[in-house]
Design a binder for these strands. Structure first.
Lengths: 69, 69
DNA sequence: ACAGTTTGTCAAGCATTTTTGACATATTAT
DNA sequence: ATAATATGTCAAAAATGCTTGACAAACTGT
C-alpha cells in the first residue's frame, strides 16, 4: 500500500503533529501514523474527518490512480 | 448515517445493478447495498474502486459536509 | 397473473481496522 | 550532551467492515 505523504505535507502546513491530528479526529496517534505509512485503509468517515481538519478535499488527500491490490 | 443516493444515481447512469457493481469491485452485493443504505462506512480502498468503476471522483460520491457520527 | 430479476434485510462468522500500552529512534532546542 | 517532543513500530485485544446464505418485498416484462 502506498505511503501517504500528502497528509504529512498538509499537516506540516497547519503545523500539526500526528498526535494533534489524531486528537482532532478522535483516533489514536498510531492510527494516524499507520495511515501516513500506508499500512492500512482507513474508513471513509475517518478520511472525511482528516480532510475537514486539514482543510483539504478527499480527492486531494486520498485519491490514487493505481489500483492498489 | 446518511443514505448515499449518489451511488445509486451513478449506477443508474451506467445501467448497472448492485450485483454488477459489487462484482466489479470485488465485494458482496450486500456490501454495496449497505453502503447505499448508509449502514456502514466503507474503507477508502473500496470507495476508490467504486469511483473508478462508476467514473466519478471521491468528492462527487463520498464527500459529506455534515459531521456524521 | 406469472416468472425473473433486483433490492432490502437478517444473522453468524471471518477479516481487517483501530485501540491500548509500551519502547526505540529521530528531531529540536537549550 | 541533555532534555523534551515527535515519529516509527510491535503485540494483543477490541471494534467494525465484509462475507455467506437465505428469504421477503418490489419492480419489469410477457
Amino acid at each position: 500500500m502506498a505511503r501517504n505523504i500528502r497528509i504529512k505535507v498538509a499537516r506540516a502546513e497547519k503545523d500539526m503533529t500526528q498526535g494533534e491530528l489524531a486528537a482532532r479526529v478522535n483516533v489514536s496517534r498510531q492510527t494516524v501514523n499507520a495511515i501516513e505509512q500506508g499500512e492500512y485503509n482507513p474508513t471513509i468517515k475517518l478520511c472525511r474527518a482528516i480532510c475537514r481538519v486539514l482543510g483539504k478535499t478527499l480527492d486531494e488527500l486520498f485519491w490514487e490512480d493505481d489500483d492498489e491490490k
